[in-house]
Structures are given as structure tokens and as C-alpha cells.
């Protein structure tokens, strides 16, 4: 009987020695027995795939692909589709005037829109520009310089469309520095406008003591409708 118990103990010891415990670090992928249903011959995103010449399952868009999705409805009721790439709503400016004819926020600015802008600002902008938008984001501690203060005069005087263009296409802070790269591929068009609206609200929050003459007119609150403080009067 004793030998039997010793035998069992030794067997268990050997199994544990060979197989280890749950949660042990393993560099090898999990073993899949009969993986024919687990791994079917179908496309999964961002995986290698031998079917295509470039070996990608997620193929880059064919040149000339027309993006299809729900249109954005502007404040004036116009429907703008993403494939209208030269439309002012999608670019921030009308292309006719060599990228200088900026538009103000074309989408209806509501409280929900501003909240959305705050959320998106928190995701994509705060690491550099800081939660207050003063350019004191955390990356400043890691050798980043030249981050714009969104409360600075330059940023204040930018029109909504110009802000949108910088978010979309980026901007070099100086010829020698890398500057900010565009976020067009990461942030949706509507969300970029929401960020613009939120940045406007942020800027407005610090203009309380500013002299009226120094404040761009778009920040001046109309006497009649004080709650409509987000209306761009570009």
C-alpha cells in the first residue's frame, strides 16, 4: 500500500514537473488538438494570408475606392458624404481658394456634440496638449517639445476650419521639428469637428478676463442669446 501511494505521488510530481502549473509563462502558442474547426480557411482581419500576393488578409484599399457610409447632416440640413473629399465639411476649407477659405463648424453644436468632443479630445489630444489644452501633456516629460498651447494667441485666432485642417493633416511646429502628424486616419470627420467644438469651449473657459478687443469675434457672446455660446461667427 505504501508503494502504491509513493507511486502516485511520483507520478503526480512527474506530470507537474513536465507540464507545470496553470498560468505559467509560455512562449509557444496554445496547443490546438483537431484545429480544423478552430482555424478555418477564411479571411480574418490583419492576419497573414497566402491567397493574396502581398500576403495580407486586410488588403489596402484599391485606388479610387469610393467610401460609403451614412452622410453627415450639416446644421443647414445639407447631406455630406465621405466620398466628397473636397467638400468643406470634409476638409475644413473650400478648395477653390487655395486652402485659405476656412469654414466654421458646419455640424449642429449640441451638448452631446461637445461631450463627444471632450471624450475624443481626451483620447487623442490630451497626451500632448494636456487635459486643459495648455500644451502640458504627459509626453512633454519624454523629450517632446514645441507642443502648442491651445490657449495661445495663434490657436485662438485660428478659425474652426483651420483647426480642423491641423487635426486632419497635421502641422509642423518648426521646419526642424517633426511636429504634429495628421489624425485623419484615426479620428472620424464628425469627431474631428466635435473636437474643434470642444477646443473652442476650452478656449472660451479661459477668456473670462480678456479684454473684448483682444478676443476673436467668434468668442463674443451675443447679447440676445447667451446660451448660444458655441456659435462660430467666422
Amino acid at each position: 500500500m505504501r508503494y502504491v501511494l509513493i507511486g502516485i505521488a511520483m507520478g503526480a510530481f512527474m506530470v507537474v514537473a513536465l507540464a507545470g502549473f496553470r498560468g505559467d509563462i509560455s512562449r509557444k502558442p496554445p496547443l490546438e488538438v483537431f484545429a480544423d474547426m478552430d482555424r478555418q480557411p477564411k479571411l480574418r482581419p490583419m492576419e497573414p494570408n497566402a491567397f493574396f500576393k502581398n500576403g495580407l488578409s486586410s488588403q489596402p484599399l484599391v485606388k479610387g475606392t469610393v467610401g460609403r457610409s451614412e452622410p453627415l447632416v450639416t446644421a443647414s440640413g445639407e447631406k455630406v458624404y465621405p466620398f466628397q473629399t473636397n467638400h468643406a465639411v470634409n476638409k475644413g476649407y473650400t478648395i477653390a481658394d487655395e486652402a485659405t477659405n476656412f469654414v466654421s463648424i458646419p455640424l449642429p453644436v449640441t451638448m452631446g456634440f461637445l461631450e463627444r468632443g471632450r471624450e475624443r479630445f481626451g483620447i487623442s489630444c490630451v497626451p500632448c496638449h494636456g487635459a486643459q489644452g495648455d500644451g502640458n501633456g504627459i509626453v512633454g516629460k519624454f523629450g517632446f517639445s514645441g507642443i502648442r498651447d491651445l490657449h495661445g494667441e495663434t490657436a485662438l485666432k485660428l478659425s474652426d476650419g483651420a483647426l480642423f485642417k491641423i487635426i486632419s493633416e497635421g502641422q509642423k511646429s518648426s521646419p526642424t521639428e517633426a511636429g504634429m502628424m495628421g489624425y485623419a486616419s484615426n479620428i472620424d470627420i464628425a469627431d474631428r469637428w466635435a473636437i474643434v467644438a470642444y477646443v473652442r469651449a476650452l478656449q472660451l473657459s479661459r477668456l473670462g478676463n480678456a479684454k473684448k478687443d483682444n478676443v476673436p469675434t467668434r468668442f463674443l457672446i451675443p447679447e440676445k442669446a447667451p446660451e448660444a455660446k458655441k456659435e462660430g461667427t467666422q
Partner: peptide
Amino acid sequence: CVIAGATYYFTPKYSRVGYQ
């Protein structure tokens, strides 16, 4: 013993957890 071993090892708690 077999049941104990299988319960402990033949599950994603062992086979997947810890994959790094």
C-alpha cells in the same frame, strides 16, 4: 488521478493563460 489531471490541464485555464 486522470480526472484530476484532465480537469487541471485540459482547459484553456492551463493551455492559454500565460501565453506570452
